[in-house]
């Protein structure tokens, strides 16, 4: 069991991240709201509880790393980094503007200095990068953990399974994959478009320690993250069942439409009211 205050604090942080996402999308220009909202609770648990990191010492050698393999939800990671103090939150509004450091997908050169650890965007490459990082860190006896946040639609990319084999073959227990299983891909439901069968069984077959959680239940998320850290000799994957667009009535009702969509002024105002935190 986790301290109730910790859980409540993290739930508040998840709400803050969703608010930051809405702020960074603004009105009129599209943003990847759906997949950001599905992963927001896990992201909050990582950056505000589980991970060792320090915005004041951002290059410290033994910091834990996050690789966003589903790079299209860069706005969620930017939101977490800004919330943690890596850069001023006001700058979130510059996302995707010409000359902004906040690119549509994580960019090492333009935003490596604010805590982006790898360039991603072409789906299916993050886990391989994570394997390389975890191996390199282990070679140096560095205790850091590498977390890779992946989508479920992304699992159709074959390179993921090359990486899954490699991570098991090298026994990377300092690597944790988190599959944000929101059951949707850009064009519809995963079941309807390109059914994957049992995701958990696939990872088990590849020799991974598999944990299944409710990705919107903070206690469950923490349980999964700690259990992942305890497995020895094998990599862990957390299959996190989520709802695409989680947190707003209209994005939950139209998760595919809000894969990458603009907000109207009305929707923006409604979202800001929901995530203001004032009801608490």
């Amino acid at each position: 069991m986790f301290d109730k205050d910790v859980v409540k604090y993290l739930e508040g942080k998840a709400r803050d991240l969703r608010r930051n996402v809405v702020y960074s999308v603004g009105v009129n220009y599209p943003g990847h709201i759906g997949g950001s909202f599905s992963a927001a609770d896990v992201m909050a648990a990582l950056y505000f509880h589980k991970m060792k990191h320090d915005p004041q010492n951002r290059y410290m050698a033994d910091r834990d790393r996050v690789i966003l393999s589903k790079g299209h939800i860069a706005i969620l990671q930017y939101s977490a980094l800004a919330e943690a103090g890596y850069f001023p939150k006001e700058e979130l509004r510059d996302t995707k503007q010409l000359y902004s450091m906040l690119q549509g997908h994580p960019d090492l050169i333009k935003s490596g200095h604010i805590g982006i650890e790898a360039g991603t965007g072409s789906l299916g490459q993050g886990l391989s990068i994570g394997c390389g990082m975890a191996l390199g860190l282990r070679m140096d006896n560095n205790p850091a953990t590498t977390y890779v946040i992946m989508g479920d639609g992304e699992l159709a990319e074959g390179q993921n399974w090359e990486a899954a084999m490699a991570a098991a073959r090298f026994g990377l227990d300092n690597l944790v994959a988190i599959v944000d299983k929101n059951d949707k891909q850009a064009q519809g439901t995963i079941e309807g478009r390109f059914s994957l069968g049992s995701i958990a069984d696939k990872w088990r077959a590849f020799g991974w320690n598999v944990l299944e959680i409710d990705g919107h239940d903070m206690e469950d998320i923490l349980k999964g993250l700690y259990a992942a850290g305890e497995a020895k000799g094998v990599p862990s994957v957390i299959v996190s069942s989520t709802v695409k667009g989680k947190g707003l009535d209209f994005s939950e009702a139209h998760p595919v439409g809000f894969h990458n969509a603009p907000l109207t002024q009305e929707q923006y105002d409604a979202a800001m009211a929901v995530f203001s935190g004032e009801e608490n």
């Binding site: 690789i67 090492l108 650890e117 790898a118 490459q125 391989s128 990068i129 994570g130 394997c131 390389g132 990082m133 975890a134 191996l135 390199g136 860190l137 140096d140 560095n142 590498t146 390179q159 990486a163 490699a166």
Partner: peptide, 9 residues
């Protein structure tokens, strides 16, 4: 991509 990860550490 693994090589990229190795280089990044």
């Amino acid at each position: 991509s693994m090589a990229a990860g190795l280089a990044l550490v």
